[in-house]
Amino acid sequence: MNKVIDAVQSDAGVQQALETALQQEFKDQPEFQNGWQDIAPLLSVRELNKFYAPGKGCGDISFDLYPGEVLGIVGESGSGKSTLLSCLSARLTPDSGQVLYNSEQFDEIDLYACEESRRRVLMRSEWGIVHQHARDGLRMNVSAGANIGERLMAVGERHYGDIRSKAEEWLTAVEIDTGRIDDRPSQFSGGMQQRLQIARNLVTHPKLIFMDEPTGGLDVSVQAKLLDLLRNLVSRLGLSVIIVTHDLAVARLLAHRLMVMRRGQVVETGLTDQVLDDPQHPYTQLLVSSILQN
């Protein structure tokens, strides 16, 4: 044991140097001291309702999403998760309620009270939507490069060389070999298609990403890789994300906080690990206790 203590002590020089360097680092960047600021929400949802039939849809939904926050929406199939996501992302007009978005270009806008054209601009610039099935989010009959480039052109990029080099950059970021840039997504595996869909969304530097079961239908090894990629991109780019999933392990890994839905209602909400480790509502307890242990 003494040998170890000696070794540790002889390392004291290394440690001292490390501590000094770290202190300097923190001093140089004072914003680290204040990771918490009072900032305005990016998205505010107020008493949103959308029902297809009694109990089918979602109702009485209110919450705020802050910049850099990842919100997970969990619950069983048919609980209204995807309906809610569609209402939030301007793809499905709710029966009542408000969705307010704090836009870079338009300041605060009420999604369903503004012109259609603004919603369209948002969807191709400040927002991204990652669909469960990549073919819903990609053009399957044009090349991977064109899939990424199309979104850039939609925000006004015209220079071919720039578009191609940005496409290559994003293919690399999502771990697709740039040699595949001229191949069509139909020639890609499911996992690659999903990563291409993510690249296509991120190329315009969106603020807010909506994801609907992004890992659903992928086999486990591909899922793990995609999750790691997503988690890194989200924290590096400071993205706000609303992710719908029925997989609680995915929710635990990616989401800062959770909303648990059942029959169109939110039954529980809170910090992700608190909801999963100390669930209060009977339905959440049932969901959590149904996970297979390995």
Binding site: D11, V14, Q15, L18, A21, L22, E25, F26, Q29, E31, F32, G35, A224, K225, L227, D228, R231, S235, L253
Partner: peptide, 30 residues
């Protein structure tokens, strides 16, 4: 997360504070 290497697992919390990666790595190794 399943496939993340040990060194990165250890570095991550410090990296998340925005500290220079080389410094995080040095402290993690130590």
């Amino acid at each position: 997360i399943p496939r993340v290497p040990t060194l990165e697992v250890v570095m991550q919390p410090l990296l998340d504070l925005g500290v220079d990666a080389a410094l995080c790595e040095a402290k993690a190794k130590h």
